[in-house]
Design a protein around this nucleic acid. Structure first.
Lengths: 394, 394
DNA sequence: CGGACTTTGTCCATAGGCTGGACAAAGAAC
DNA sequence: GTTCTTTGTCCAGCCTATGGACAAAGTCCG
């Protein structure tokens, strides 16, 4: 178990870095803004802000962009972040496809690349990762801030993938390897948690302090942003809710237990249930999650039943999360969100049924959409935090 | 919902305070220790440590206590915390009794006082609080570090009790009132969460970074210590697991729902179940939790069944906590712990049955004992953290 | 149009606090 | 007794926040 080590001492350099990140964050969140306004918002003196902005200009991260309207005195000089001052390469190592993108500081995708996995695993899969990074770095780009990788499975803070079942990776120090090979800062993180962090960071200036994002697709995983920080847990497994047991006497799960959330509420599970129900009733078997969504939207009772059952199961998980953590913003994203309102209503109903009324009243379960790029954006967000100190605590 | 405000700027004073708390913590955890050793452990220069220790001596918090053994050079001067340099008054506002104590910096109880509630609520209950504090402050004591209050119910970070059912308090700004009346720093916190923080802080030097303490008595509540900090949640309700729904078709709960954890696993619930079971079977009805524990220990199948059922229900809650948070140290404390091993085994079994094998293997469910003073110690720990900066992050 | 007032951004002297080297005191090893 | 280590303090230097002063550039009002 991780023990509390002695925290690092505080130095002047850290103080400076902290204040620099305050300025950066003001610039990032509040668009073109004057030095004086930054000083008011952050509490820093105009002197310090001036120096820090000068540093950012030196680094090519910020520039003056004209004057703003006067409020009774000298008109302010507006300073703006240069969105394309840095680029990043981030990857989403999906079930069947590896996706990569070149992003700017705003998380805007400049270029993409994909590779089909075609059953590749182990070293072959690692080769694909290099391949994608090389392809994206071959084109024109600004200085690279770092490389970000989102992957299923458990990843420690050093960037070592403890295990990722479908890629047959165990204890793969991917982070260190990529960092050494490309000589660039590298972040490797679990995909769901990366997605959660993206949802948090790109929320804009009034991001909540706490947020839980649940990604429902082939698997189910959540990321917990607590006090503005992605929470790891002791074994870097925080948010791995796919194997919470929902129906103790339910279907077997590949994890060895019965009735895990994934056996009930994941996209494959929903398809399976729809298949059996349709076969039993002798009606047409839906071939995709979209087909089920369409049928449910059209009022097909069978489809609605399947959708609602899946939603309720997820609602139980939501209830246990909100009950335990009292986090009031839950964002659900991933391919399952095409199921739309009937599904969300079931999630909300069940969550409400299982938590204190006062708590449930203030908890919002938000539809985050398919969020296909959430993982790509997530490791981007992690790089922004780690390399630029875009978010800070204290 | 709480939004991320702009974090405070960093100043030299903060840097100093941070480093001061590192020194204090070394002193607190590692007993009599030399300045040089502190410097090595914290990474601070001997110069800084010397200054900071001098400040602590100035404040009467530390003193030199002789020389240590030489390791080949000048023998180190050992410095020690003065355990009784400050005292605190802390209170545990229980169901039927208010308990208070005067504690020193080590959480050692110097004097106690209690008052029976006898149905007092509202202002009468507040009067009792004053009464207890006055009684303890009347005797001899060192300078008072602060006042700490642990209470059931939801308490915000300002020390306002949002609601506490049994005392019929709503939105009572107890913290501010006491602080103003006694002109002393005051901490008010939920009792279970205070207890959790005590369990964390008084664990000693190798306290884990994450810990969950679950208090099972008349009610059930948990406290979450995540990354060394008590986690609040958006509405200061983190850890309020007593009303997680375990049996959707179970017994009605006073909260308005059915089958909450408290209707199954709390001490009153266990007594109730034992009562009905015994009445049904026509055997002697156990009058106390201790009697049930004794019967179970003696092999009474009826009692064992009740104990195990309660344990399993708690195990479900543990599973959902560990599954979601991946926190590997769970401490269970409170009056229900007299149920002993049969109960703990049921908790562990059920938790194991419902979480990933790899996770369950490393998770320990520890018997924290009745921990009658945990709430008193908990607000003491909170005061130590808040007023002396005994624990810090970064 | 001109003077009074505001706001902005920079400059400068000051001070807080960390850094690292120097040094004496105190002990061990030979 | 000499040399080497370790400890604790002192001191000069540096980084960085602070707050006042000031010029530039506006608005507002007569």
């Amino acid at each position: 178990m991780a023990r509390t080590e002695f925290p690092a001492k505080a130095t002047h350099a850290q103080t400076r870095a902290h204040n620099a990140s305050l300025v950066l964050r003001a610039l990032y969140d509040l668009g073109p803004i004057s030095r004086a306004a930054i000083a008011r918002l952050t509490g820093l003196t105009r002197t310090s802000v001036g120096e820090l902005v000068a540093e950012l200009e030196q680094d090519g991260l910020a520039q003056e962009v004209g004057r703003g309207p006067s409020t009774g005195g000298k008109a302010p000089t507006l300073v703006s972040l240069i969105d394309d001052a840095r680029h990043m390469v981030t990857l989403d190592l999906g079930e069947r496809t590896f996706t990569a993108a070149l992003l700017n500081l705003r998380g805007e995708i400049q270029r993409r690349a994909t590779r089909n996995l075609d059953g590749a695993d182990g070293d072959a899969a690692v080769a694909l990762v290099h391949d994608l990074i090389d392809e994206l770095l071959a084109g024109p780009h600004s200085p690279i801030l770092g490389i970000g990788v989102g992957t299923p499975g458990i990843v420690d803070s050093e960037g070592t993938i403890r295990w990722a079942v479908n890629l047959s990776w165990t204890d793969l120090p991917l982070g260190k390897r990529l960092a050494a090979h490309y000589n660039l800062p590298t972040v490797v993180a679990n995909d769901s948690r990366a997605a959660a962090f993206a949802t948090f960071l790109f929320e804009g200036e009034d991001r909540p302090t706490n947020l839980i994002a649940i990604k429902v697709g082939h698997g189910i995983g959540a990321g917990l942003v607590l006090d503005g920080q992605l929470f790891d847990g002791d074994g870097f497994g925080a948010g791995e809710i796919g194997h919470i047991v929902i129906e103790p006497d339910g279907a077997p799960c590949h994890c060895g237990r019965f009735g895990c959330l994934e056996t009930v509420a994941s996209v494959p599970a929903i398809l399976r249930r729809a298949f059996f129900q349709a076969a039993e009733s002798g009606v047409r078997i839906p071939q995709s999650i979209e087909a089920i969504a369409a049928a449910a939207a059209a009022g097909d009772e069978l489809a609605l039943g399947v959708v609602r059952a899946a939603g309720r199961a997820l609602g139980m998980a939501v209830a246990s999360l909100t009950g335990a953590l009292d986090v009031r913003r839950i964002v659900v994203l991933g391919s399952a969100t095409v199921l739309g309102e009937p599904w969300f209503e079931a999630i909300r109903d069940e969550a409400r049924r299982r938590t204190l009324a006062t708590l449930a009243r203030d908890t919002e379960v938000v539809n985050g959409g398919p969020a296909d790029d959430a993982v790509l954006l997530g490791t981007c967000a992690l790089l922004l935090t780690r390399e630029l100190g875009l978010t800070v605590r204290r």
